[in-house]
């Protein structure tokens, strides 16, 4: 009887481990249109209304805990903001270029009214779910293909770039944030030294897993004069053949540090994103009536 129980227990364990490994292997090997991916989208479609209801019902609790966290962070945040304000004040007074940059930023912050998103139709969506691990920086929003959302469309908040749509069902979508390990965004640094915004210093923004408030701008030449406080925006299109998924001049973040490694021909620039990606209640998906997103999906193009 005891031996039978032990055998049964071990059999269940082996079976479950084998099932997990089977799922992992098949899922990893199949394309985005494969049966397991389709199953996930189907489940998302079914659970999205439940998630939305639960998200609304539990919002007071989230706000309560958010208040505690805000209070804990308030002192550090105040000191940091004071320092940042002083730095910005010096620069605004000191340089005409910085003044121009300032006015440019003000325009960028009003995304809906600016030229940046001209040709796009922003769709406002509520965040109804979020991945709990640092390895998957994704959120689920309550707008899907019925609202014109398509895969690879850019997503912004009032502060700046948030990410891109990576899966769509009829009533919900998954957004992969710019802090996800698979994310990459071409970006440009707006330095006062380079007044022509089309010729700013460009690089590729990659996240650092485990540091959601720190993005890395890579492939920036060592000679590029980048300073703390410089603003980083999306580079946008450079070629009609290889058009970027993100429109140009969407604000991404501010430079906090530049690592100048002696043996490398590039410097690595650290950026603090403008958008607080851990506190998103609403985002805007920049839709284009569906045509562009669908064609990109058909081509299987990546950013």
């Amino acid at each position: 009887m005891y031996k039978q129980s032990v055998r049964r227990r071990r059999a269940v364990l082996v079976l479950l481990v084998a099932a997990s490994l089977f799922l992992l292997t098949v899922y990893f090997g199949e394309s985005a249109g494969g049966p397991f991916h389709a199953l996930q989208r189907g489940v998302l479609q079914v659970t999205a209304p439940i998630q939305e209801g639960a998200s609304r019902a539990l919002k007071p609790f989230r706000d309560l805990f958010g208040w505690f966290d805000d209070t804990l962070d308030a002192r550090d945040e105040r000191d940091r903001l004071r320092k940042e304000r002083n730095e910005l004040r010096k620069r605004v007074i000191g340089a005409q270029a910085a003044e121009r940059e300032n006015s440019q930023l003000r325009r960028l912050l009003n995304l809906d009214r600016s030229d940046t998103v001209e040709g796009y139709e922003p769709v406002t969506a509520r965040v109804i779910g979020r991945s709990p691990t640092v390895w998957y920086a994704t959120i689920t929003v309550d707008k899907g293909s019925s609202a014109g959302v398509r895969v690879y469309q850019p997503v912004v908040s009032g502060d700046g770039l948030v990410g891109k749509v990576t899966a769509v069902t009829r009533g919900a979508s998954q957004v992969t944030l710019i802090t996800d390990s698979t994310s990459g965004v071409s970006a440009r640094v707006l330095t006062p030294a380079v007044t022509d915004s089309a010729n700013g210093i460009t690089g590729l923004i990659k996240p650092a897993v485990g540091r959601p408030r720190d993005l890395l701008l890579e492939f920036v030449p060592r000679r590029a004069n980048i300073r703390k406080g410089d603003v980083v925006v999306t580079a946008g299109s450079r070629s009609s053949r290889l058009e970027s998924l993100f429109p140009a001049n969407l604000p991404v973040g501010v430079v906090t540090k530049a690592d100048d490694e002696e043996l490398s021909q590039y410097q690595r620039v650290h950026i603090r994103p403008f958008a607080d990606l851990r506190r998103l209640d609403f985002v805007q998906i920049l839709t284009r009536g569906g045509a562009r997103g669908s064609s990109l999906r058909a081509e299987g193009r990546n950013p």
Binding site: L21, L23, L24, Q40, R41, L44, S131, T138, T140, T166
Partner: peptide
């Protein structure tokens, strides 16, 4: 499944 993550990873760890 709900988070559209790689299937099997969380299952393996949590089991």
């Amino acid at each position: 499944t709900a988070l559209l993550q790689t299937l099997g990873v969380s299952s393996l760890v949590l089991l």
